[in-house]
Structure formats: C-alpha cells, structure tokens
C-alpha cells in the first residue's frame, strides 16, 4: 500500500499498520538470514538450502490451498515438471540454468492452468482426488520415459549449475544464497498478492464461492489464476532443485512429496505466510535434524498431523486478522 513503509512490511505478517512489526524488522531479518549459515557446517547449510526449496513449494501451494481454498494434493507434479524442464533444456539444448529456470516455471504454470480448467467445478475432496491422480500420471509418464526424454526410472543426471557471468554456484553456501533470493522474492510476491484485488478475490472464493460469484467475481478465472501462479512457483522450486543436485528422478512427483507440501501449508496455518515457514520447519527440518528417529519420521509426522488437527486445527501460526480491511 505504502512503499515508504514497504521494507518493514516486506517480511512481516501484518498488514494493519497498528499491529505491523517495527520498520527495521524486515532488513534485520534478511541480514540475520544471510548470516545464519556462516557458523554452520556444510551439512546444515545443505539443510538450510533444502528448507528454502520447501518454503518456496509451501508458498506456491499456499496460494492454491491457503488463499483460494482448493485441495491440491498433486503439487509435486509441477515441482517435477519444473525440474525436468530445466534438466532437459540444459542437457539437450545446452541452455544455461538462468535461462531455463523461467521456462520451467512457465511450463509448470501452463500445465497447471490446463489441468485445472476441467476440474475447477469439483467439490473439495473430489478435487483432491483428481489432483492425486494427476500427480501419479506425471510420475508414471516420467518413469516410463515419455517421449524418450525423461530418462525413465533413473531420471536425468549431469544437469549444470547456475552461473551468473563467470561465477558458478557450487558450494552449499552459494546455493543457499541463490535460493534465499528466490524465497525473499516469493514472500514479497505472495504478500503483495494477498493484499490485492486478486488476493481478496481468492479469499472470497474460499469463504463462499457462490456468494463471491454473485458479487461479481469471476470465480473460474480467479481459481485458475491461483492454480497457474501456484504451479509457476512449484516449477521454479523444481528448477532450483535440479540445478543444485544435478540428478533428478521421477520420485520428485511422488504422492508423499505432495503430501509433505500440503502439510506444510495446512500444519503451518492456512492463509498465513509465516505459517508456511513454521510448517516447513516442522515438516522438513525437524525430521531432517532428528536423524535418530529418521526411521520413524513418517510415523512421527503422521502422529503430529493427527494431534495437530485435534488440538490446534488452525495450524502452528494461523492467519491473524490481517489488514485487508485497513
């Protein structure tokens, strides 16, 4: 709303000026995030990078689930589409990563748009089922080496690293900063969308779709835009993933991956951006760091999902009554 106050509101959860965080919070947070990996060892830096990827995935799904209220349980398919597009463009056509990234994101977005059009009218849980099916279709296509381009069950390997000018991102630390840039941009973008005509339209649709339509909101357009933008975000995350690990497999499109992303949004608190970060910490960082219980990771996740739904159904960091009305 007000660019002069913009920076402090860049990362904060607020909106309502009376409750907004202090002005220095945003820049301070960014500086702290930049310093965070420096004292950590290489493994923890890789974990931070992974968290960045999942925050991006969570943010992108947050648009679809948190704002527009549609149960998308096949989000990992678009993650995989982004990763494979970047991989194929790089390996087959020799495109540099920075050029392939936007194409991968865009293609994932277009796929999201095409897929969602015939299914938008479905009721919540039916939508969830079709999206699961779509995720599985993508995974099977990848496994069966559709078009001879995806490398089958082994996937693709040897994808290049991102490079700017002559500088190539190699170490975990460099990749962390690379992803951090996209995470910060993503947070800013989602915050701006939330506090906009389109963002409000998503929430009207989530609250009462028929009333939204009757108040002049083109619900089909608004919902397909949510799917498009969410899929773009997932595709971007996929491209970033591919350009660091350089080996990708159809496992990216696994249902378990989709569920993880879905739970990041829901456990974190539907409709809240800090909730996505907290959700990522709970779903990804905790199991990663508690390696002793890694075998029981899924069981632990399952248990916490049930307990959360019973005792804290609004999520770890629910959406505060924000300043949309201010």
């Amino acid at each position: 709303m007000n660019l002069r106050r913009g920076f402090s509101r860049f990362l904060g959860p607020g909106g309502n000026p009376a409750r907004a965080l202090p002005r220095y919070f945003g820049p301070l947070g960014i500086v702290l995030l930049c310093l965070l990996p420096l004292p950590l060892d290489n493994y923890l830096r890789a974990v931070l990078w992974q968290l960045g990827i999942y925050v991006l995935l969570g943010l992108s799904l947050h648009i679809i689930v948190g704002y527009a209220g549609m149960f998308q349980l096949g989000h990992a398919a678009f993650y995989a589409i982004g990763a494979y597009t970047v991989g194929i463009l790089n390996l087959r056509a020799g495109w540099p990563i920075l050029l392939a990234l936007p194409v991968g994101a865009g293609l994932a977005g277009i796929c999201g748009y095409i897929v969602c059009r015939p299914i938008l009218h479905l009721r919540g849980d039916y939508l969830a089922i079709v999206t699961i099916a779509f995720g599985e279709i993508v995974r099977i296509l990848l496994v069966n080496d559709a078009g001879g381009w995806t490398g089958g069950a082994n996937g693709l390997s040897g994808i290049a690293r991102p490079a700017i000018g002559g500088f190539v991102f190699r170490t975990n630390l460099e990749h962390f900063y690379f992803v951090l840039v996209f995470v910060l941009l993503g947070i800013a973008a989602v915050r701006r969308l939330e506090d906009s005509r389109l963002g409000r339209a998503w929430m009207y649709v989530r609250e009462d779709e028929a009333a939204a339509e009757a108040m002049g909101i083109d619900t089909v357009r608004v919902k397909s835009l949510a799917f498009f933008l969410g899929s773009v975000g997932a595709g971007l995350a996929g491209g970033l993933y591919a350009s660091r690990v350089s080996v990708i497999s159809p496992d990216l499109a696994r249902f378990q991956e989709s569920v993880t992303i879905f739970c990041i949004v829901v456990l974190g608190g539907c409709g809240s951006i800090p909730g996505v970060v907290v959700g990522t910490l709970a779903m990804v960082a905790l199991p990663e760091l508690m390696r002793v219980v890694r075998d029981w990771r899924d069981g632990f996740l399952g248990l916490s999902m049930i307990l959360m739904m019973i005792f804290r159904p609004d999520g770890l960091w629910p959406r505060r009554r924000s300043g949309l009305g201010t």
């Binding site: 609250e207 002049g216 909101i217």
Partner: peptide, 28 residues
C-alpha cells in the same frame, strides 16, 4: 451470505471487485 471469516470492510470491498481491473502484475 456474507463471507463469515472476513471483516465487514473486506466483505464490502468484494462489491468493488467488478469495477477494478488491477491484475497479477499490477499487484506484484
């Protein structure tokens, strides 16, 4: 048929939606 979980003002702002035109890029 109000939007129960949104504020009164947000509810009324819904009415303005059809008269606006700002899209994704304008918002970003």
């Amino acid at each position: 048929r109000l939007f129960p979980g949104l504020t009164v003002r947000e509810n009324v702002m819904a009415g303005r939606h059809c008269r606006g035109k700002a899209g994704v890029f304008a918002a970003l």
